[in-house]
Simulated scan of single mutants.
Amino acid sequence: MSYSISIERTSALKQKPDFSQLGFGKYFTDHMFIVEYDDGEGWHDARIVPYQPISLDPAAKVFHYGQTVFEGMKAYKDAEGKVALFRPFKNLQRLNRSNDRLSIPAIDEGLALEALKQLVTIDESWIPTEEGTSLYIRPFVISTQAALGVSPSEKYLFMIIMSPVGAYYREGINPVSIYVEPQYVRAVPGGVGNAKTGGNYASGLKAQEEASDKGYSQVLWLDGVHRKYIEEVGSMNVFFKLADKVVTPALSGSILDGVTRDSVIQLLKYWNIEVEERAISIDELVEAYRNGTLEEAFGTGTAAVISPVGELNWQGERLILNGGQTGPLAAKLYGFVTGVQRGAVEDPFGWLLKL
Rank of each mutant, 00 (worst) to 15 (best):
residue 4 S to V: 13
residue 14 K to G: 07
residue 14 K to Y: 12
residue 14 K to D: 10
residue 15 Q to Y: 09
residue 18 D to M: 11
residue 24 F to C: 09
residue 25 G to K: 05
residue 25 G to P: 05
residue 25 G to C: 08
residue 31 H to S: 13
residue 32 M to N: 04
residue 34 I to Q: 12
residue 41 E to W: 08
residue 44 H to L: 11
residue 49 V to K: 11
residue 58 P to Y: 06
residue 60 A to D: 07
residue 61 K to D: 08
residue 62 V to T: 15
residue 68 T to D: 15
residue 70 F to P: 01
residue 75 A to Y: 01
residue 75 A to H: 00
residue 76 Y to L: 05
residue 77 K to C: 13
residue 82 K to A: 14
residue 82 K to F: 11
residue 89 F to T: 14
residue 89 F to C: 05
residue 90 K to M: 12
residue 90 K to H: 11
residue 98 S to T: 11
residue 107 I to W: 02
residue 107 I to P: 01
residue 111 L to G: 08
residue 113 L to W: 04
residue 115 A to V: 04
residue 116 L to A: 06
residue 117 K to T: 10
residue 117 K to H: 06
residue 121 T to F: 08
residue 122 I to K: 01
residue 123 D to Y: 07
residue 125 S to G: 11
residue 127 I to P: 04
residue 128 P to A: 10
residue 132 G to D: 15
residue 132 G to P: 03
residue 135 L to P: 04
residue 135 L to Q: 08
residue 137 I to W: 02
residue 141 V to C: 10
residue 142 I to P: 02
residue 146 A to L: 10
residue 148 L to V: 13
residue 149 G to T: 11
residue 151 S to Q: 15
residue 154 E to A: 14
residue 155 K to G: 05
residue 156 Y to S: 07
residue 160 I to Q: 03
residue 164 P to D: 12
residue 166 G to D: 12
residue 170 R to D: 15
residue 171 E to C: 05
residue 172 G to A: 14
residue 178 I to E: 04
residue 180 V to L: 08
residue 186 R to G: 00
residue 194 N to I: 00
residue 195 A to P: 04
residue 199 G to Q: 06
residue 202 A to I: 11
residue 209 E to K: 10
residue 213 D to Y: 06
residue 221 W to I: 05
residue 224 G to D: 09
residue 226 H to K: 15
residue 227 R to S: 11
residue 231 E to A: 03
residue 243 A to N: 14
residue 246 V to K: 00
residue 246 V to E: 00
residue 252 S to V: 08
residue 257 D to Y: 06
residue 258 G to Q: 01
residue 259 V to H: 03
residue 267 L to T: 13
residue 271 W to E: 08
residue 273 I to V: 15
residue 281 S to D: 07
residue 288 A to S: 15
residue 288 A to M: 09
residue 288 A to W: 06
residue 295 E to A: 00
residue 296 E to F: 01
residue 297 A to H: 01
residue 298 F to R: 00
residue 300 T to H: 02
residue 302 T to L: 06
residue 315 Q to M: 11
residue 318 R to H: 15
residue 320 I to S: 09
residue 321 L to M: 09
residue 323 G to Y: 12
residue 327 G to W: 00
residue 328 P to C: 09
residue 330 A to K: 01
residue 333 L to I: 13
residue 334 Y to K: 01
residue 336 F to N: 03
residue 338 T to K: 07
residue 345 V to C: 11
residue 347 D to I: 07
residue 350 G to R: 13
residue 352 L to Y: 03
residue 354 K to W: 15
